[in-house]
Amino acid sequence: MSELHLNSLKSLIVFKTLFESGTATRAARELGITQSGVSRSLAQLEENIGMALFMRHKNRLIALPEAEELYQEIMELMGNLDEMKHTIVALREFGASRMRLVSAPALGFAYIPQVIASILRINPKYSIYFDIMPSPDVVRAVESGHFDAGFVTLPVTSERLIIEELFTVEAVCMIPANHPLAAADHIEITDLKNQHLVIPNQPNLAADQVLRLISQNKIRISGKTEANIAAICSLVANGVGISLINPITAYDTVAVQRGIVIKPFRPAFHYSFGLIYKRSWSDTQLIKLLKENLPKTPDCLER
């Protein structure tokens, strides 16, 4: 097989225009070159790739099947070139063309989507990849370089990352709207006697603390259901039981899920949340852009 030479995009652009216009005359007019220039470019391309793309018949060019396939490849290439332009603009303006974010579930369902929306309002061409996973996995994912920045439930430790505390919230109790406790001003630890609890099936600060309080106060519950945090709110709404949870998730859920009321819990305990990223990223435009678009406080703290 002879060696393939494609040293310039010009001949591909000429071919694309010729394929779309149907005649060398129209292609020359659209490109602002001579008809002979179109013909020379096509002949050079066919020579370089080692095959004919058009059949010549009575001064007409009839596209061969090979031309159709090459055209589709060129269209994909042009799309990639446009994407490269956007990448270069983002690199010039923001120091990066994409942002890979990962979050613990507590912030992942509404708080971080708000951040992403703010960033894309500034630059709609920014490419963002976002995922949700438990805080320990968030730390490992950012340490390994699979993500640029992460949002975690504190405390976490890492020698390789900068950890910045963002804010602290007080845990609340989510209760089915038709539950006897729904009318209470607040829920105390003693109110959990003989209640069914809905708790996360992964390590969770609130679950750990409430179970410890239950044990310390020798309170007997009727049982517990462990579930993914995304399902906990639906379980509560369906009357399975009550749950202790961070207010960000709780209030975000009430916005879309009926059948739940939210009450303060006593004794109070708190969640703290933080932003993590590699030390080498501390002065990058990407991290600065991210910090500038973090809401000062979640909406639930302003209620």
Rank of each mutant, 00 (worst) to 15 (best):
M1C: 08
M1H: 13
H5P: 02
H5K: 15
V14P: 03
V14M: 03
V14A: 06
F15W: 08
K16R: 15
T25E: 12
T25G: 00
R26H: 09
A27E: 09
L31G: 08
S36I: 03
S39Y: 11
L42S: 05
L42E: 05
E46Y: 04
E46C: 04
I49L: 08
I49T: 12
I49E: 10
G50D: 09
M51R: 15
M55A: 12
K58C: 00
N59C: 00
R60A: 10
R60W: 05
A63F: 05
L64Q: 06
L70P: 14
E73Y: 05
M75R: 14
L77W: 02
L77S: 04
D82Y: 11
R92G: 02
R92Q: 12
R92S: 12
S97F: 12
R98W: 03
M99G: 02
V102T: 15
V102Y: 03
S103I: 07
L107N: 06
G108Q: 07
I116V: 15
S118H: 13
I119K: 01
L120Q: 14
N123C: 10
P124E: 08
P124D: 08
Y126Q: 14
I128V: 15
P134A: 07
P136N: 03
V138W: 02
V142I: 09
E143K: 11
S144G: 14
G145M: 07
G145H: 09
A149W: 06
G150Y: 03
V152F: 07
L154T: 06
T157E: 14
T157F: 11
S158V: 09
S158H: 12
E159H: 14
I163N: 06
E165G: 07
L166C: 08
V169Y: 00
E170Y: 00
V172A: 02
V172M: 04
C173P: 04
M174S: 09
A177F: 00
A182E: 11
A184Y: 09
T190Q: 14
L192K: 09
K193I: 02
Q195C: 06
V198N: 04
P203S: 07
D208A: 12
D208W: 00
Q209L: 08
L211E: 14
L211R: 13
R212W: 03
L213S: 07
S215Y: 03
N217A: 13
N217M: 04
I221H: 02
G223I: 07
T225W: 01
I229G: 02
A230I: 06
S234G: 11
V236P: 11
L244M: 12
I245K: 01
I248N: 00
Y251R: 01
Y251H: 14
D252Y: 02
A255C: 03
V256Y: 10
V256W: 02
R258H: 08
G259A: 11
I262R: 04
R266E: 15
S280Y: 00
S282Q: 14
D283E: 15
Q285C: 03
I287R: 10
K288P: 05
K288N: 15
L289S: 10
L290H: 04
K291N: 06
E292Q: 15
N293E: 12
L294Q: 04
L294I: 15
P295T: 01
